[in-house]
Simulated scan of single mutants.
Amino acid sequence: MRLATRSFLSIAFLTASAVVAQDAAETRAVSPLRKLMDESLAWNELLTSEDSAEPMTVRVVMRWANNARGSEDGLTMLYLSQGRPEAVCCVYPWDNKLIHEFDSLSRGTFVARRDGGVFWRPAKPGPVFKPVPGADAPADSPAARLRQMKTLAGQFSSTMLGWRANKSDREELRMLPQPLYRYESQRSDVLDGAVFAFVQGTDPESLLLLEAFQKGNGFEWQFAFARRTSGELEGRHKDAVVWHVPGFPEGKDPLGTHFGIGRAFDSSVNIDLEKK
């Protein structure tokens, strides 16, 4: 009996030690940089219009690292209106600043505010949606539509053409098997949709949006690509190039569909970065 009790206590001690070690690891993982990144989610408000009283919902869909380009910690978030993603933002450290890099995913326009003022107001819709070639009509059930979207997403690919003139930094991007976000929106013109990511490491470099969008009295599958990097990008459906954007996009035009804004780190975060 004493032996069984001793064995039970040993197991309990080891289990408790493992929990303590896990808690300690999680505590250590919350660096000043990670804490600042999480706090920065509240810095911006996106609204469907100047008159809107309710800001869009913010959802973090991925935390990532890109050691190839020196970003050891980053996150991607979506701004949602009626369940549909209207904008995407990547947050990452660069040049002693915390960068918020936005792209419009909207079929319309919106406004973005920070510190009480409007800093970004895209003057036109973001991605260009087109029918998915050869796609069947959206299925009746949500589960069947998700299977359709995964199958359709597998027909697309994306390539990072990079920054160099000779394309020596060209790289085929890897599509994550699961969507970053799947939505059945509350809008009457959007039945269903999902956002898929093409990544370098775990860092999204381009996004693929698939939507069951209204056409006449029914719906059809439509697609659009969106950039998540300053590099030149290409998107293909099977063997056909269906999307191309040049490198080094304009990121300071408050009326553009791509916009970046940075805020300098305080001293505690600078110290943390130096330790890395």
Rank of each mutant, 00 (worst) to 15 (best):
1 M>P: 00
1 M>D: 00
3 L>M: 12
3 L>Q: 11
3 L>E: 15
6 R>Q: 15
6 R>Y: 11
7 S>N: 07
12 A>N: 03
12 A>V: 09
15 T>I: 15
20 V>N: 06
20 V>A: 10
20 V>S: 08
22 Q>N: 12
22 Q>T: 15
26 E>R: 15
27 T>P: 01
34 R>A: 08
34 R>Q: 09
34 R>K: 10
40 S>N: 07
42 A>Y: 07
44 N>S: 11
45 E>F: 03
46 L>T: 03
46 L>I: 09
55 P>M: 06
56 M>P: 02
56 M>T: 05
58 V>G: 00
59 R>D: 05
65 A>Y: 00
67 N>T: 13
71 S>D: 10
75 L>D: 04
77 M>N: 13
78 L>Q: 01
80 L>I: 04
81 S>C: 12
86 E>Y: 03
86 E>L: 06
88 V>Q: 07
90 C>A: 12
93 P>T: 04
94 W>A: 13
94 W>S: 09
97 K>G: 08
97 K>A: 10
98 L>C: 03
99 I>K: 10
99 I>C: 13
100 H>S: 13
100 H>G: 05
100 H>Y: 09
101 E>L: 08
103 D>Q: 14
103 D>I: 04
103 D>R: 14
104 S>P: 09
105 L>W: 01
106 S>W: 06
107 R>V: 14
107 R>L: 14
108 G>M: 05
111 V>A: 08
112 A>S: 10
113 R>K: 13
120 W>L: 07
122 P>E: 06
124 K>A: 14
125 P>M: 04
126 G>I: 01
127 P>E: 02
129 F>E: 01
131 P>Y: 11
132 V>N: 03
132 V>F: 03
139 A>T: 04
140 D>T: 14
142 P>I: 06
145 R>I: 01
145 R>C: 02
147 R>C: 07
150 K>L: 05
152 L>H: 03
154 G>P: 07
154 G>Q: 14
154 G>C: 04
155 Q>E: 15
159 T>E: 14
160 M>E: 14
160 M>T: 06
162 G>N: 06
164 R>N: 15
166 N>A: 15
172 E>T: 10
178 Q>E: 14
184 E>K: 08
187 R>N: 09
188 S>Q: 12
189 D>H: 10
191 L>D: 08
191 L>G: 03
193 G>Y: 02
193 G>F: 00
197 A>Q: 04
198 F>P: 01
201 G>P: 05
202 T>A: 11
202 T>L: 04
203 D>R: 11
206 S>L: 05
208 L>Y: 03
209 L>A: 03
211 E>F: 01
212 A>F: 01
220 E>I: 12
222 Q>F: 08
223 F>Q: 00
225 F>L: 01
225 F>Q: 00
229 T>S: 11
229 T>Y: 00
229 T>Q: 02
234 E>P: 00
234 E>V: 07
237 H>W: 10
237 H>Q: 14
240 A>K: 15
240 A>G: 02
240 A>F: 07
243 W>Y: 14
244 H>Y: 10
249 P>Y: 08
250 E>Q: 15
251 G>K: 12
254 P>Q: 10
258 H>P: 06
259 F>L: 07
260 G>M: 13
260 G>Q: 14
261 I>M: 09
262 G>F: 06
265 F>Y: 13
270 N>W: 13
272 D>Q: 13
272 D>K: 04
272 D>E: 12
273 L>E: 12
273 L>A: 05
275 K>E: 08
276 K>S: 11
276 K>P: 05
276 K>M: 08
